[in-house]
């Protein structure tokens, strides 16, 4: 299982890009940390999610 923003999901083996494309996240408005480290934008397609990964997706909203 992969933990994403606190939720356990059965998506081990998928790439981060695959997972994101199944969601409503806007790729231009997010930052993704995996096990405490930033995942570079250019690596979403080659980052394979593994069992016990802990992923935090920060999705920004406007205002400042």
């Amino acid at each position: 299982m992969v933990k994403i923003n606190g939720c356990e999901l059965d998506i081990a083996g998928k790439t981060l890009a695959d997972y994101l494309s199944s969601t409503s996240y806007d790729p231009k408005r997010i930052a993704v940390e995996r096990n405490g480290e930033i995942v570079p934008k250019s690596k979403y397609g080659e980052t394979v999610l593994e069992d016990d990964d802990c992923v935090e997706i920060v999705s920004f909203v406007g205002g400042g």
Binding site: D26, K28, R29, I30, A31, I38, P40, K41, V58, F60, V61, G62, G64
Partner: peptide, 9 residues
Amino acid sequence: AECKAMLIN
């Protein structure tokens, strides 16, 4: 939001 994400990344 896009500028925020750009800078953070």
